[in-house]
Write a protein that binds this DNA or RNA. Structure first.
Lengths: 200, 200
DNA sequence: ACATAACTGGACTAATCGGTCCAGTCAAGC
DNA sequence: GCTTGACTGGACCGATTAGTCCAGTTATGT
């Protein structure tokens, strides 16, 4: 029943990339339209406002990330190895964007959330939902590990899940500010191992 | 020999607050001038550009933070207690801004860095310097603790110093996005204790 | 008293911002 | 064939953006 959402999809696709690289305020609707080959009327036909576009972008990213987590959790590996492989995926993305454009951009949710939290309750709220869901994903991975005996039975999976999300955000900020994928990786690995209680 | 730097100081003071609360792009030079009671000619007399003002703001913040760290490290407390008290200071600030304005704003360096890293090499570089210095501060605190026997002699202070900075940035992003000073504190404490190897 | 430099009020620019409006084109349903 | 609603090109809006310019004021050093 999907009619002509082609233009809408193209706008979201372009905006996803541009929002990641430039942030919200530094990005104009005009440029999004130009790169998407759409006119402003089309833009405002599909999205009531720039803010709503950002919301749609976040939802789209979230959908992608759901898929990525599902794939990671379906891997035939020990539970903790799956967790580490989710980190490895982030390192790879970070390295790739750095190779392509000379810059590390960190976590798209964290970057947008950090910029927009103070003045867009809607976007802040949505990103908070994503964060909450991510915590749950990490916690579930840790509980898998507990079930398989890879972690002690009294391991505090909930606290650790949140700590892992904080680690991801922290390493993203460091990677972005130092502009170093390697440092992002080192920081992430070090903290992850400490959380899993295998201090170097 | 200081002449009339009063206006300049006022601009920096106002901009420090506004940059923290609103970020870089969402903040206009006009508003800074109005709130500082200065005219645009004054602004551009003292600062070649908005970017240079941001640089001055960062330097000013850094100067303040230097003082704060010096005070913390001068406290007559066990070394690790001093480290924890530096975290407590951040919790207090986070709670205070939340009480005053209903919003957690996280770390000023991290927020600015995250927003500006992709398109202002100068600001990114300066914030990277600040980060590097902070790592050093944390490492020094940890080395104090090692010297005093509060940490084992083989404790990896350098890696842990960076991990602590990452923790600070991670908890700041979570606190900002969840808009919760309590969650910021819980996350920070949990991660700090894990790093110090007293896992809950 | 005078020169020099520091500083400022206010008008100004060119560009851009998010967003609107309308006259249309187009494809589908009847 | 006709209507309806989804969609679009392009002109347009008022507001705002960072930054400029200059004439004038104020302070400083001699």
């Amino acid at each position: 029943m999907e009619t002509r959402t082609e233009t809408r999809d193209k706008i979201i696709q372009v905006a996803t990339d541009l929002l990641y690289r430039r942030g919200y305020e530094a990005l104009g609707v005009k440029e999004i339209c130009q790169r998407a080959g759409a006119s402003k009327s089309s833009f405002y036909h599909f999205f009531p406002s720039k803010e709503d576009l950002a919301l749609a972008v976040i939802d789209g990213r979230w959908h992608e990330v759901r898929g990525a987590f599902a794939m990671v959790r379906a891997q035939d590996l020990p539970a903790l190895a799956r967790l580490r492989s989710s980190f490895a995926m982030m390192y790879q993305i970070s390295r790739q964007t750095h190779d392509e454009s000379g810059q590390v951009f960190g976590c798209p949710f964290g970057s947008l959330g950090s910029e927009l939290a103070p003045f867009s309750p809607r976007l802040r709220g949505r990103i908070a939902e994503v964060f909450s869901w991510m915590e749950g994903q990490y916690r579930a991975m840790l509980e898998d590990a507990i079930t398989k005996g890879e972690l002690p039975a009294d391991f505090a999976a909930e606290t650790a899940g949140r700590a892992i999300l904080a680690t991801v955000q922290g390493m993203s900020v460091l990677g972005k500010v130092y502009n170093s994928p390697e440092l992002l990786q080192q920081t992430g690995d070090a903290l992850l191992e400490v959380i899993l209680n295998r201090a170097a």
